[in-house]
Amino acid sequence: MVRTSDKFPGVEWVEGTGDFIKINDEKCTGCANCIKVCLGSCFEIISQKAHIKSLETCMECASCWYVCVEGAINFNWPQGGTGYKSEWG
């Protein structure tokens, strides 16, 4: 299955990615760096911890992983053949 998003035209997402980004609650300090750099609005903070709201508009840029200096974000690529794709990159 392929999804699109009104917010971000020209991009498609193939489903079946799996949870390729995970947050380690124990390490997360709630600093919100990941929220600030995620243009896809994939994170939210609930009781001072980051949570993944949805990876449906994730562009796999890894910015969240770069800015999490606590090492609370476990970042992997989605399952092969899934996730975002575009003709216009």
Partner: peptide, 9 residues
């Protein structure tokens, strides 16, 4: 006309 928007580091 906007056709696509995406981002990458």
């Amino acid at each position: 006309k906007l056709r696509a928007r995406m981002w990458e580091g």
